[in-house]
């Protein structure tokens, strides 16, 4: 089973990288951008019978730092 784990900064947490990307888009003439937030995509391949609690555990214990980040899992 393939998993996609999307890790994103929580709303309200300053994202300096997103801000730099926003600025660069502006310099390229893309003026309509209201906000940019940068996150990560982590792709995992796991055994088909891996249960949701285990997947959630992987996200909470390592893949995301829940102090500053949210995560969302998509099963492919």
């Amino acid at each position: 089973m393939k998993l996609k784990v999307f890790v994103t900064l929580k709303p309200g947490v300053l994202d300096p990288q997103g801000r730099a990307i926003h600025h660069a888009l502006g310099s390229l003439g893309f003026d309509g951008v209201r906000d940019v937030r940068q996150g990560k995509l982590i792709e995992l391949e796991v055994a088909d019978d891996t249960d949701d609690a285990t997947i959630d555990g992987m996200c909470r214990k390592l893949l995301a730092n829940t102090v500053i980040e949210n995560y969302r899992v998509e099963k492919a």
């Binding site: 947490v13 300053l14 300096p16 990288q17 730099a20 730092n65 102090v67 500053i68």
Partner: peptide, 17 residues
């Protein structure tokens, strides 16, 4: 130490990058 949970909060990318 923050990642290990011994101290609260997190250290993020410097504001000015």
């Amino acid at each position: 130490l923050t990642e290990a949970g011994l101290l609260p909060g997190a250290l993020m990318r410097n504001e000015g990058l």
